[in-house]
Design a protein around this nucleic acid. Structure first.
Length: 592
RNA sequence: GGAGCGGUAGUUAAGUUGGUUAUAACGCCGGCCUGUCACGCCGGAGGCCGCGGGUUCGAGUCACGUCCGCUCCGCCA
């Protein structure tokens, strides 16, 4: 029991005091950021989640306090009482509280600290491995404190906005029936049902649709989702979605509602006015101009396709790629700012990971090329220059490959070069809706759902379901921000005849439909409303709005790229007894 | 499943063609100092060079394997 807390209540946070508070008697609590011992006086920076305040321990003011003050070390947790004094002309501009300091009268050391493995400050170059092991210390750093406070603000504002618009916050199960297709699921063994497993929900998709059937009309949930896929800088095995579903809506109504949410977040958190409605761009346009379905519109560079021109180029590599069913994508880079030889020489390394190569030429007077593509036919060259809009001094990059690879590579090159040349405008917020994506993904003749099998095709494309499924576009939309997919959704199918036709196009037999989605199909027999929804990636939104580089900066306890938690050392092996209880036998040839 | 980069005091890094006692900065410990705020000055401690075996008279250094972390491709309906 702390005598200090029995007699004192904190009066201010460490970022609160100003010149006008001079003379006040205050109580502060926090952690020792740093200490500067001058013999007969000690200066301490006291830190809490709100900021820093300089404490003064002075022999003449209070010798007993000074004695304790001399012993204080980094990250000790203390409480003090004292008097606010103006610093006069010796203001510290770096602190919001820099106009004042607190002269300490009494102090209690709540707890001492071992020397931390790294210092608790933003300008830190410590390995992430060490930081993750001591995550509770890393989280003391002001930047992470601020990011997680911003995250909290997002969820608070979201609840407020959706609540004001008559959405109900409802929960759905995490432990669900395993349904194949889509992301890999984490499995949870059932002790009460030996040999059977739950799956951790990769999304509440089906349940939120059933809530629409149940007549709740407007649902949302800020919900954890689980996917057992390989991880990235912007992908964690468990992540949080702002999950939303509405009945009796079309795309326009739903998107407008969501634009209201997003603009509110940016206004209230960053005081930035995002113009709405957001730009709409078709999937086809995005792929053509940017090579990806999530264009970063902060960069004006655009791709173009030069397959036709290259067919008669007499340039064998391109002609072979085209003959094999591939395409040639080109990226024109204007003369200024200059594209250095060093950047160009770095391109092979960059494109290698995409399984592609790229070629480049410098355009000279009269459209003449130098650099690469020796022997390229002149007429084809002139046509490429025309399509690309190339002028003397420009550089043109080429990627010839299968459409998927060529687009991905050229799209990535666009941003790589854009970044190197400073052509990505920092500080802009480029929102857009990506619309009209294909309903199906077709690879090697196999038809799969591009989104999920309950996504509605466009009415005008329904007739193509049986004849040309590859041309059917979906009533789906992604919200894209600065090249990041921050949300996605669709208008769902609510007519069982249409659902049957989509299942048929996917090659899912009657029998399979029943086994996998029987309960949903049954539910749809009982007057389902037309409905649609969207899910936002809360972590990505928080990452972007807080200007963080990694998802790990906006998740309190994130996992590594291999899905482990370095602080708790998880996952772990379990005892034979636990396995026996679950009737699970490990294979003898585990790769460990 | 694949590619690349990294792992040396608490932290961040340097470490030459393989060769005496593995350096530095910050941090830490002790001493001095009343105006610092990246305090200053003096002194000091601190190392399984990720791990394993291999080549060698000799390995932080070379080759191999392995573990861990990061970035990316595939993957993420």
């Amino acid at each position: 029991m702390s005598a200090f807390l029995a007699n004192h209540t904190r009066t201010h946070n460490c970022g609160a005091l100003r010149a006008t508070d001079a003379g006040a008697q205050v109580v502060l609590t926090g952690w020792v950021q740093s200490s500067r011992d001058h013999g007969k006086a000690v200066f301490i920076d006291l830190r809490d989640r709100d900021g820093k305040t300089q404490l003064v321990f002075d022999e003449a003011f209070d010798p007993k306090a000074l004695e304790v003050g001399k012993d204080l070390r980094s990250e000790w947790c203390i409480g003090i009482t004292g008097e606010v004094r103006s610093r006069g002309t010796m203001v510290n501009d770096k602190l919001s509280t820099g106009a004042i300091e607190v002269w300490v009268k009494s102090i209690e050391v709540f707890s001492k600290s071992d020397t931390p493995p790294f210092s608790i400050e933003d300008a830190i170059d410590t390995n992430e491995q060490v930081r993750l092991k001591y995550r509770y210390l890393d989280l003391r750093r002001p930047k992470l404190q601020k990011s997680l406070m911003t995250r909290s603000k997002i969820t608070r504002l979201t609840r407020q906005y959706l609540g004001d618009n008559n959405f109900l916050e409802m929960e759905t199960p995490f432990m669900v029936k395993y349904t194949p297709g889509g992301a890999r699921n984490f499995l949870v063994p059932s002790r009460l049902n030996p040999g059977e497993f739950y799956a951790l929900a990769e999304s509440p998709q089906i349940f939120k649709q059933l809530l629409m059937v149940a007549g709740f009309e407007r649902y949302f949930q800020i919900v954890r989702c689980f996917r057992d896929e390989d991880l990235r800088n912007d992908r964690q095995p468990e992540f949080t979605q702002i999950d939303i579903e509405m009945s009796f809506v079309n795309e326009a109504i739903l998107q407008k509602m969501m634009e209201g949410l997003v603009t509110k977040l940016w206004k209230e958190i960053l005081d930035v006015d995002i113009p709405a409605p957001f730009r709409r761009m078709t999937y086809a346009e995005a792929m053509a101009k940017y090579g990806v379905d999530k264009p970063d519109l902060r960069c004006d560079l655009e791709l173009c396709e030069v397959t036709e021109a290259c067919k008669t180029s007499a340039f064998k590599i391109f002609e072979d790629a085209i003959a094999a069913g591939g395409i040639v994508k080109a990226l024109r880079i204007p003369a200024n700012p200059a594209l250095t030889r060093k950047i160009l020489d770095g391109l092979p390394d960059f494109t290698k990971s995409f399984g592609a190569q790229c070629a480049w030429v410098k355009v000279g007077e009269g459209g003449v090329w130098t650099g690469g593509l020796k022997g390229f036919a002149e007429s084809a060259r002139d046509e490429v220059n025309r399509v690309a809009g190339a002028h003397s001094g420009d550089t043109i990059l080429f990627v010839a490959n299968k459409a998927k690879v060529a687009n991905a590579t050229a799209g990535a090159l666009r941003l790589f070069i854009g970044d190197k040349l400073g052509l990505i405008r920092k500080g802009e917020w480029q929102f857009m809706w990506l619309i009209d994506p294909p309903l199906f993904e077709i690879e090697d003749g196999h038809v799969a759902a591009a989104h999920h099998p309950f996504t509605s095709p466009r009415a005008e494309d329904e007739e193509l379901l049986e004849t040309a499924p590859e041309r059917v576009l979906a009533r789906a939309y992604d919200l894209v921000l600065n090249g990041n997919e921050v949300g996605g959704g669709s208008i769902r199918i609510h007519r069982s005849d249409l659902q049957s036709r989509v299942f048929a196009a996917l090659g899912i037999s009657e029998e399979h439909r029943k086994a996998k989605f029987g309960f949903l199909l049954d539910a749809f027999k009982y007057g389902p409303p037309p409905h649609g929804g969207v899910a936002f990636g809360l972590d990505r939104l928080a990452m972007l709005i807080s200007n963080s580089d990694s998802l790990r900066d906006v998740i309190a306890f994130p996992k590594t790229q291999k899905g482990s938690d370095l602080m708790t050392d998880c996952p772990t092996h379990v005892s034979q007894k636990q396995l026996d209880e679950l009737f699970i036998q490990l294979k003898p040839d585990l790769p460990i």
